[in-house]
Design a protein around this nucleic acid. Structure first.
Length: 619
DNA sequence: AGCACGCCGACT
DNA sequence: GTCGGCGTGCTC
């Protein structure tokens, strides 16, 4: 017998090994094998008949039963293909860590057919989870939005015979394990528990039960009637850098469809992509959200002012009233963006083709588009109001803190700095923030406050988010404003200072009307050919010869399915970034176009990195 | 990804 | 005369 094994390495072809006599081995099982002189863990992707004396033998089993069944392995293949990544790196990121102790024990038990090797490991065993639910009647994907969505998810999981709940990060996993664990035991598949416990949870879940995990648990084998859930779909942590290079939501939707499984997704502010799929044709059901507690929302126009003083009279007044009422204040400041806006009307200088905020380079006195690469000289006047003052002005944490201390000298003020919020320094800062009456921070500071614990959330200049050179800038701002409103609740205030007071995102928050935002945003996305109507990919070319990037552009241009924007030099010198726009078949079109540059015998030196459906736009 | 092999500078 | 820099290339 020969086993084909995929490794966590940037080679996307498997390596073949001889299977020692007497072993029971199945695709989806991890093994230890010699590779490049080292013992490495790999995933068996196929077992076939044959005998090649030139092959090295496998060294040991890394687990007694396959971590993935046939369906799980196939889903991993789909993710790898969809993200143009290797199956080895993709599956390594989607499996629990191998317990080295257990691996040794398994090795010691072989090659004798020891009773400790469960029958499940035999290649004729049933697929480990992933089989279609009997009858197939239970399938369906539902999006839960609005007030009470988490309560509804808890109820639905409580009613389900079995469930896998995917959350954005380990902290959320601990929190949800506690919430779900009130009535029944909860298996944890995230890195917040010891590896042994995690591996055991992975193996037990296929027999039923409720499990919580981060995206690394997306392929966990499930009982046929298990519910699949994804919490806070809008969180960026569902697609962090690194493998698996796909959004967890896309895996959940694909898995639900393949396995005819019920799936629930919750979000305060769903991604535009998901909201669109919740429309008539997308196959995702959504109940219109019922209005929940909402603060009094004030939008303060800052056009033409706000150069010396970060707080407008409405915001300053509300801060004073909130402090007088003995309640806490959070002032939200956004990171400075390197783009220009009109001081008079607030209009942001944008690319005429792409509508992205143009990146302002002071030294070169130019504006350039991060998508299409267009570079323009600095304009003299605002295209909207003919105003003559265009500036990169913005408020940072320090400047706002200084101004607030001057204005409210008796108040306890603390700054919440995302850079310093970890470690011992973070603890001190956390304590200071917990005792403060006014906290000045970035979006991460919202986590400091429980529901309805805030008297006032004030946005000093959320327009800075709109100035980011990202087509999701509006979505980001909307999500942040909405999250703040939810934290304030019914008995507090939300004050939004803005140079764009008529922006549809502000209007939607003020009216507590989710649909109003998505209507306008989808119109914008459709007109300019952004997701969800078209798909994007970033191709970054590093190293190689000068001509490599040009050759790749030529290869991509040859595809009728792709629109290619010329390369933009990255800050890291020698790296050049190409933006590609495509359709639903983007991954396949990219794979075909780049065939000669990838694969086992690449025709070129240099690193070609492909990020499909990027969430974080490099700026 | 590791890890080796491979040709050009500062050391016992 | 060697030790070692990490640039290219392979790993079943």
């Amino acid at each position: 017998m020969i086993a084909d094994v995929a490794f966590d390495a940037p080679v996307d072809h498997p390596f073949s090994y001889r299977v020692p006599a007497g072993w029971s081995l199945a695709a989806g099982q991890r093994v230890l094998a010699p590779l490049g002189g080292a013992r490495r863990v790999g995933l068996v992707v196929a077992v076939r008949d044959g005998d090649d004396p030139g092959l090295k033998p496998l060294l040991a089993l890394a687990e007694t039963a396959p971590a993935l069944g046939a369906a799980g392995l196939d889903l991993a293949r789909w993710i790898a293909a969809e993200s143009l990544s290797s199956l080895g790196s993709t599956s390594a990121a989607l499996l629990p860590p191998v317990d080295p102790g257990a691996a040794r024990a398994v090795a010691a038990a072989l090659p004798s057919r020891d009773a400790r090797a469960p029958a499940r490991g035999v290649s004729t065993a049933r697929p480990a989870g992933g089989g279609p639910a009997p009858g197939g009647a239970a399938s369906g994907v539902e999006l839960l939005v609005g007030a009470g969505r988490e309560r509804r998810l808890l109820d639905r999981v409580a009613q389900a015979p079995s469930a896998l709940v995917i959350v954005p990060d380990v902290e959320a996993a601990a929190r949800w394990a506690q919430r779900l664990g009130k009535h029944r035991a909860v298996l944890r598949l995230d890195s917040g528990v010891p590896d042994g416990e995690r591996a055991e949870a992975w193996a037990r879940l296929r027999d039923g039960g409720v499990a919580v995990g981060t995206r690394s648990a997306l392929l966990a084998p499930l009982a046929p009637d298990a519910l699949l859930a994804l919490v806070d779909e809008h969180e960026a942590a569902h697609k962090p850098p690194g493998p698996p290079r796909i959004h967890s939501r896309d895996v959940v939707l694909e898995r639900a469809q393949r396995e005819r499984r019920r799936a629930l997704l919750t979000a305060a502010t769903p991604s535009v992509e998901l909201w669109w799929r919740a429309g008539e044709r997308g196959g995702v059901a959504m109940t219109p959200p019922a209005p929940g507690p909402w603060p009094a929302v004030t939008i303060a126009d800052t056009r033409g002012i706000l150069r010396r003083e970060p707080l407008t009279p409405p915001l300053a007044r509300t801060v004073r009233e909130t402090l007088a009422a003995g309640r806490r204040v959070l002032l939200l400041v956004s990171r400075l963006a390197s783009s220009l806006a009109c001081d008079e009307c607030g209009e942001i200088v944008r690319c005429p083709q792409c509508a992205l905020a143009l990146v302002y380079t002071r030294a070169a006195a130019t504006l350039s588009c991060r998508l299409c690469g267009t570079t323009l000289p600095l304009p003299d006047t605002c295209v909207h109001c003919q105003g003559r003052r265009l500036s990169p002005f913005g408020w940072g944490l320090e400047r706002v803190e200084h101004a607030v201390r001057r204005r409210f000298p008796k108040a306890r003020v603390a700054r919440w700095d995302p850079e310093a919020s970890r470690g011992a320094k973070g603890e001190a800062q956390r304590a200071a923030a917990a005792a403060a009456e006014i906290v000045i921070g970035t979006r991460g500071a919202l986590r400091l406050f429980g529901p309805a614990s805030l008297g006032l959330a004030g946005f000093v200049s959320p327009d800075q988010l709109l100035r980011l050179p990202d087509f999701r800038a509006g979505e980001r701002m909307f999500a942040l404003l909405w999250a703040a409103a939810e934290r304030v609740g019914a008995h507090g205030s939300l004050v939004i200072q803005s140079q764009n007071p008529g922006h549809y995102a502000l209007d939607a928050v003020a009216r507590q009307e989710l649909a109003a935002f998505y209507r306008a945003e989808l119109k914008f996305r459709g007109e300019l050919g952004y997701p969800p109507f078209r798909r994007l990919a970033l191709v970054t070319v590093t190293g190689g010869e000068r001509r490599l990037a040009d050759e790749i552009v030529a290869a991509l241009r040859a595809s009728t399915r792709l629109t290619v924007y010329p390369p933009i030099a990255e800050r890291r010198e020698r790296a050049r970034r190409i933006v590609v726009k495509g359709h639903a078949d983007l991954s396949a079109a990219l794979a075909t176009a780049l065939e000669d540059f990838r694969g086992p015998r690449p025709r070129s030196r240099g690193i070609i990195d492909v990020e499909v459906d990027p969430v974080e736009w490099p700026s």
